[in-house]
Simulated scan of single mutants.
Amino acid sequence: MPWLQIKIPTLPKYTEVLEDAMLLAGCKAVTLIDTEDQPVFEPIRGTTPLWEHTTLQGLFDEDTDAEQLVDTLNQLIAAEKMHVGTVSAEILEDKDWEREWMDNFQPIACGDRLWIVPSWREAPDQNAVNLKLDPGLAFGTGTHPTTFLCLKWLNDHVKGGEKVLDYGCGSGILGLSALLLGAEQMDGIDIDPQAITATENNANTNNLSPSLFRVTTDVETLAESYDVVVANILAGPLCDMAEAICQRLNADAPLVLSGILSHQASSVVDAYERWISFDPVEELDGWVRLSGRKRQPKGFK
Rank of each mutant, 00 (worst) to 15 (best):
A78K: 04
E16T: 07
T35R: 03
F278G: 06
T72W: 15
W120E: 00
D103K: 15
V70P: 02
H263M: 10
R113D: 11
E98W: 06
D37S: 01
G182M: 07
L222K: 06
L73Q: 13
L222W: 09
Q264G: 04
E62C: 04
W3L: 00
C27W: 02
D187W: 15
V230H: 12
V84P: 00
V269F: 09
I77R: 01
L234T: 12
I91H: 05
E98N: 11
N232D: 05
I276V: 10
T221H: 11
E93C: 00
S262E: 09
V268R: 15
E67R: 14
A109D: 13
T217W: 05
N202C: 00
I108K: 02
R293N: 14
R121N: 05
V70N: 06
H263Y: 13
E273M: 11
A78V: 02
L92T: 01
W115E: 05
D270M: 06
P145Y: 13
E283T: 11
Y14F: 10
T47H: 01
E162T: 06
K301T: 06
D252L: 11
E62H: 01
V129P: 09
G172C: 07
W153E: 00
A89T: 00
V230K: 12
K95E: 01
E80I: 04
S267I: 09
S171W: 15
G286R: 10
K152V: 05
M102Q: 07
G111W: 15
E122N: 12
V281M: 06
P135F: 09
T143I: 10
L284D: 14
Y167R: 00
E90W: 05
L23I: 14
E184N: 10
S88L: 04
V256H: 13
D63E: 05
I108Q: 05
S277E: 15
A195H: 05
N104D: 15
D65M: 04
L174T: 01
T197W: 03
N207A: 00
Q126F: 11
P210Q: 09
D71C: 08
V164Y: 12
P9Q: 03
P297S: 00
W101Y: 10
M241D: 02
V215W: 13
K298I: 11
D103G: 00
D134Q: 06
A235G: 01
V117H: 05
D65I: 03
Q57W: 09
L249F: 11
A138R: 08
L222N: 05
L23Y: 15
G236K: 14
A138F: 14
H83W: 13
N201T: 04
L32W: 15
L212T: 01
P297F: 13
